[in-house]
């Protein structure tokens, strides 16, 4: 090993950062890619048939900086190549391996159930943007009512145009909504056969009409890719597609944990 790879040992207490849970009874190592820039080894802590994928880390609350967030995601992606993962949300640190085993023990049934449901499945992300101005121009061309209102506004010189403008705004808005809805449902419809489940998140910004995640069986990845390419071709020049993945099934698993005083 070269010197740069030597972990720096800062003062202070050490903990275990947890990236995800997998099903595995034998120990695994995923390389010196742990969070926190210290080249910590990523390895597994086991309870029965489950394992937490962890690395040593300082016992601190991690900030979701770019570097930390990408380190968390990178480990998940590495592990995902060979395992079905239940991803931990960012920043989960335990003190000791024993605490992690206690955690796996306490959540055993839930993990078993959810891992079973996610077995062999991965997530893909799809964001779809449109050129809203182009769509509005198109609507002005196609929609009779919009055309008529525009003519009214142009031809009238006085007060009546105020009402027409308001109405035009409303009509255009609902026509846009209808068009976005129809694009979105066509997209969902064409991906239905290749995906198991879908979730729609809130679109970001005013050009986005769809911000969705799809759960896909690993062996259907290629079919899903092809479906995405097909719709992208179909809507070329109208919509732009941002297609990402594979991701751990973040959008399809939500297990919330709390701390409880143990009763003895």
């Amino acid at each position: 090993m070269d010197e740069a790879a030597q972990p720096v040992q800062p003062d202070g207490e050490q903990g275990k950062y947890v990236y995800c849970i997998i099903r595995s009874e034998s120990p695994h190592s995923f390389g010196a890619v742990g969070i926190g820039r210290r080249n910590d080894q990523v390895y597994t802590v086991h309870y029965k048939e489950f394992a937490a994928v962890v690395s040593n880390c300082p016992l601190i609350v991690f900030d979701p900086t770019r570097e930390n967030a990408l380190a968390h995601e990178h480990v998940n992606e590495l592990v995902m190549k060979d395992f079905t993962v239940l991803p931990m949300s960012f920043g989960t640190v335990f003190r000791t391996e024993n605490d992690i085993r206690e955690f796996l023990k306490g959540t055993y049934e839930a993990l078993s159930d959810v891992l079973g449901k996610m077995e062999g499945k991965i997530e893909f992300g799809l964001k779809v943007n449109w050129d809203k101005d182009a769509v509005i121009r198109e609507l002005e061309h196609d929609d009779e009512e919009i055309r008529r209102l525009k003519e009214e506004i142009f031809s009238s010189t006085s007060s009546s145009s105020y009402f027409s403008r308001m109405q035009l705004g409303r009509v255009v808005e609902s026509a846009l909504q209808a068009r976005a809805d129809s694009y979105v449902s066509e997209i969902y419809e064409s991906l239905r056969d290749a995906a198991i489940a879908s979730r729609s998140n809130k679109p970001i910004g005013d050009k986005m009409i769809l911000n969705a995640a799809f759960l896909v069986a690993r062996e259907k990845t290629r079919a899903f890719d092809e479906q995405i390419s097909d719709i992208a071709r179909k809507y070329e020049n109208k919509l732009s597609f941002l297609y990402t993945g594979p991701w751990p099934p973040y959008n399809f698993v939500n297990i919330r944990l709390k701390l409880e005083r143990a009763e003895r």
Binding site: E102, F103, G106, T107, A110, D113, V114, K117, M118, S185, Y188, E189, R192, A195, I196, A197, S198, R199, S200, A212, L215, N251, F252, V253, N254, I255, R256, L257, K258, L259, E260, R261, A262, R264
Partner: peptide, 18 residues
């Protein structure tokens, strides 16, 4: 003697209705 317990579990396995 504190332990971590499940507060809630959700899995989302439905496909969007058209």
């Amino acid at each position: 003697e504190a332990r971590i317990v499940i507060a809630s579990i959700d899995t989302y396995l439905k496909y969007a209705e058209a």
